[in-house]
Design a binder for these strands. Structure first.
Lengths: 144, 144
DNA sequence: TTGAAAATCACCCGAAAGTATGACAGAGGT
DNA sequence: ACCTCTGTCATACTTTCGGGTGATTTTCAA
């Protein structure tokens, strides 16, 4: 039933447009500018829609990230990650909150924040989830 | 929400400035017509692209997520996770923030929040990192 | 047609996370 | 002794998350 309303609306709209067109037939000369503008708008709108469709169509390039790594100790050093930072990283990857990590390591919440901040800096990320993702890609922590 | 307002405001502001500039440039007086036409063309082109993306969001969005199907589809159903929720889960596991996910899926931030909230409920977790950890354990998403 | 599930969006609020900066102590290398 | 790195802790501030609630629209199957 909603569709009926839509169709009805569309019908009315078309009718209005037609009436308007008839009305403007006498005034075409006076509104050349507007008409041109409208036409340009319509054409480029269509072009834009077409471009938008085109743009979204080929997004099926599968990304094959292959990193079935087992946690390489050398890589940790490579990335300049300290022992403590790595511990924090592991715990983060297990889904622990900063507070939980702090309790587990017997340090303050602020310390955990400092460690994770440095970690994020070294991994060039800005959130724990990104850190975990990248760390697993790089083989800095074991994947499950 | 706010973002949209901001972008819209910025866009309007830029447009106004541009129009002002045009207005005050006597040298280009002669080309006002062309410039206006060009501007209209550009604006509607952008609008068209946006509309095109918007219109095809449901078709294009799922394609963006390249899942080589290493996860168990039955398990997803087992846990009562909907398609959209699963998409969000995947993107979360890739370290994206809610805002980034919203942009990628062409939905609002609030929607992503709703999806993730339901997801957390179903997975019986209370944070994205825990969700990722559990989902990988359960084989709901591919491990890298 | 209708009814349920899914998807969408909004608002509020408190908690957690993240940023920036500074400080201090111990270990280890030069 | 001096310097650097690491680990520790703190304060203050901004941003993001997550929980709770309510609502409308779409979709899909019975």
């Amino acid at each position: 039933m909603k569709r009926i309303y839509i169709y009805y609306g569309i019908g009315l709209g078309i009718l209005l447009v037609v009436l308007r067109l008839i009305e403007y037939q006498f005034l075409v000369r006076a509104y050349v500018f507007e008409i041109y503008g409208g036409l340009i708008a319509l054409i480029f709108m269509g072009l834009g829609i077409w471009a938008g469709l085109k743009l979204t169509k080929r997004k099926s390039a599968p990304v094959v990230i292959q990193t079935p790594l087992q946690f390489d100790e050398n890589k940790i050093k490579e990335w300049g990650i300290s022992k403590r930072e790595h511990e924090v990283l592991e715990l983060i990857s297990q889904g622990l909150s900063n507070q939980e990590i702090a309790d587990k390591l017997f340090v303050s919440l602020n310390t955990v924040k400092t460690h994770s901040a440095r970690l994020f800096e070294k991994l060039e990320v800005n959130s724990r989830t990104k850190a975990v993702h990248k760390a697993k890609e790089l083989g800095l922590i074991r994947v499950n």
